[in-house]
Design a binder for these strands. Sequence first.
DNA 1: CGGAAAATGTCAGCGGATTGTCAGCGACAT
DNA 2: ATGTCGCTGACAATCCGCTGACATTTTCCG
Lengths: 220, 220
Amino acid sequence: MRALVVEDDRRIASDLERALSSAGFRVERIEDGETAWFRGGTESYDLIVLDLGLPRLDGLTVLKRWRAEGCESPVLILTARGAWTERVEGIDAGADDYLPKPFRMEELIARARALVRRSGGRATSIQQVGDLLVDLNRMSVAVSGVPVSVTPLEYRLLSYLTLHRDRTVSPSELLEHLYGDDDARDANALEAVIARLRRKVGPGVIQTRRGFGYDLGVAG
Amino acid sequence: MRALVVEDDRRIASDLERALSSAGFRVERIEDGETAWFRGGTESYDLIVLDLGLPRLDGLTVLKRWRAEGCESPVLILTARGAWTERVEGIDAGADDYLPKPFRMEELIARARALVRRSGGRATSIQQVGDLLVDLNRMSVAVSGVPVSVTPLEYRLLSYLTLHRDRTVSPSELLEHLYGDDDARDANALEAVIARLRRKVGPGVIQTRRGFGYDLGVAG
DNA sequence: CGGAAAATGTCAGCGGATTGTCAGCGACAT
DNA sequence: ATGTCGCTGACAATCCGCTGACATTTTCCG
């Protein structure tokens, strides 16, 4: 599941990225209209979240050009609260759904899933890596078919590794993901979480790359 | 493209008819709930615009009955401006979109088009999850066949969980659903409702996932 | 209206789950 | 060997959700 987020407000973009990636999307971020136009026309995404107020090239224009070029990815547009004209224009321009700002992340996720499902994309919120199974919808975990109960922190760690299974994730990146920049923790806190997780999912699932970080066993 | 307009205010109904026909719909008009129920259940439309304040039979009831009978036409409901409860109930009852009055015709048309474009699957009115049975029509609840009397708030909580049985619902999302953003409540209010509900439906129906939220026992 | 009954919100406190910290240990590389 | 990195178990503090009692609001009905 690839998602493209086109949003110039860093803060919102970050929230979106976090929410979408923990919902199982691999997220790419773009901050201005021209780049968005290029990327959306070239690559193929399972979902595009498009803010209408963009620098360099207006979101509506971008959307129209995409559609003109035959881009069929489902597009969810973000509009300002009272701006009903935007909504109308957006839908006429080929948007599949819209969400007025400010919005609740859960609602965005729900709509995103609905869009993906509707567009025929396999809305697989279930991630499988080796014997490990992570259901991003239920927020549940199983190993070799046996359900395992994990705590919120453990779940976040595990889903993050799952979504980045193709590489080794550094401890600092994990720390940043689990806690904010704000209340940073000791590296040992992370190790404690890993240890507890390993006790639950069994050894061999989370592998340590000494000096580099952690990954799931599949790595090459 | 057949559209059904259910609206008792002649003035509004005329406007709707004019706008919809110039958007390419063949429009039929109905002014009271009972007739609407009959027609919607019998005929098949590409779009239904439904006012909630109707003579003889309330719009919400009509909608629920349609859905109960298997009518799957996309329904756009018209609600009074501030009435968020109507909005919520409407969507719970199976509406596909809503528009608060007063509205611009352009927006209605845009939404109508969007709805028609994506005529997809929809929910039925009797929901069963494990031993729990929630009838969205009659707004009644039963556990293992035994009817349980629940209060309005409890019902809304339960039906929300039922409609989102495929995932774990966070407390904040539940709070937002039960109360608006406007008059927010303490998280403890929610816990109180849950506690009282559990006393009625028995333990094990609503499960707590500490740190995540609540779901119905069907977990995977 | 007005009072009773039902529904709901609030509070304080409990109990347990979760998680950070620490100290010590093992293992790996040079 | 030895210093560094990562692991582990124990412990403590914190957080989260539950409960029962009580206060407040809403609803119902005469």
